[in-house]
Nucleic acid binder design. Structure first.
Length: 108
DNA sequence: CTGTTGACCAAGG
DNA sequence: ACCTTGGCCAACA
């Protein structure tokens, strides 16, 4: 049998992806915000976990999710630069790996 | 079983 | 603006 896994966990991951799918181009959301919108308040870490599980060809706009400080939470050397350029390409200003949430935050 | 580790966060110093 | 602490919770060693 496939390894058992708590059903609510998978449902949570799915709910997270659905919320991220709602973030429009040119706007960003925070991990905590996504968790809250997905009905999982206080579980921002799970959001990071869920996004890490996404395949490279996923339609889920993972690059529009930043931490509470408006900073990119990825290590330098690849993913970080990719996220930065994807955001820039949509008109989101990224400076020193950082975005001004007052201007670019998504308000559902 | 316990301990550590995260794409996190809010509050305090 | 930076660092620490406590909270969060699933995966792993």
């Amino acid at each position: 049998m496939t390894p058992r896994r708590p059903a609510h966990s998978l449902a949570a991951v799915h709910a997270i992806w659905e919320v991220v799918l709602l973030v429009p181009p040119g706007r960003v959301a925070t991990y905590g915000q996504v968790a809250h919108e997905a009905g999982l308040p206080g579980r921002a870490r799970l959001v990071g976990k869920a996004l890490k599980l996404l395949p490279d060809d996923s339609p889920v706009p993972w690059h529009r999710v930043l931490n509470a400080s408006g900073r990119i939470s990825l290590p330098a050397g690849g993913p970080r630069e990719l996220q930065s350029s994807l955001l820039s390409a949509e008109g989101v200003e990224v400076r020193e790996g950082r975005v001004d949430l007052k201007r670019f935050r998504w308000h559902p």
